[in-house]
Nucleic acid binder design. Sequence first.
DNA 1: GTAGGACTAG
Length: 385
Amino acid sequence: MHHVDCGFSVLAIYLKKGIPFDVVTFTTPIRGIFTENRVKDAVDFFKKLVREKICEPNEVMYGTVMNGLSKKGHTEKTLSLLRLMEQGNIKPNICNSNIVIDSLCKDRNLDAAISLSNEMNRKGIRSNIITYNSLIDGLFKFGQWEKVRILFSEMVNHNIYPDMHTFNIVIDGLCKEGKVEDAEEVMRHMNEKGVEPNILTYNVIMDGYCLRGQMDRARRIFDFMIDKCIDPDIISYNILINGYCKKKKLDGATQLFREISRRGSKPNIVTYNTILQSLFEVGRIGSAKKFFDEMLSTGLVPDLCIHGTLLNGYFKYGLVDEAMSLFNELERKRGKSDIEFYNVVINGLCKNRKLDKAHAIFEAFFYWTASECENIQYNDKWTLS
DNA sequence: GTAGGACTAG
């Protein structure tokens, strides 16, 4: 329920009353801390558990920490944790290995991912369908089609066959390349193989048509999906709304926006951001501000992306004071954590001929970053004691 | 019917 603090309160009661706990009791809050983006806290908690021998970690607990680290972009640390496991009593299993392989793929480090999977196979940790799916997705997104073919035959030689994820990965890969017809062909093929397309399949194909600006075809998939009794989710709506926005058909977008709640779904931060971007794009600044306020009144919490949209929008129309007051407020609230913000503000100030101000912000951020990097680098080694 | 890994949107 995203109430990690309440979880810890319950944990305190456990400990006070002497209710028995196990490794599951502690793995759950680790995952919770990660979902709150508190990477360092999660890792410190994990280390404390091990150091003070409060509980013996198992493969799942290691996996939870590794997954948290990898999803926040700390591939190096994820890999070193795998290496640490290999030296200790709890040997890594295929899940632990897959987390690192996927992380390497997401970093576009495909050679390293493939060589790690080969290494793990030699050590007796055999690749499964998830390993292959991660690799195929990475190779596809990186345009290495030939290697995908090799992996496919390798997979089938090992009696591992494509599942729904595999098909969706391939369909998405084709769509992003603009080959939506081929993607639809693969969808028919998966039907023949007895793998039913799911909502993800349809969403990906709709996005493919949207990317080519073919809104009629995207809309046809949307209707087809409903015929098949698959309810569109918020992502389906966001894909279509984005399609309309990119074609500057704001009417179509707002019409769909109103339809969301009628169909029992709820707009999310992505929905608002997509439309907000478009309002700025066509210069409807007043509507954009009103729309953002409307979002706040629904209780949605703005994120990095939508703040970036606001900043960009203000700068684009020369509203420097407005942009800077938002920026100062954000800096106060979040601390200096997101380089993207600084890029937006520095770029905006430069475009508005405020070079001195831009330079001052650059300097401040530069020195702050340098000292942060020092902190991180000296802590890079994994020691659990 | 207690915890971990792969695929979609801004």
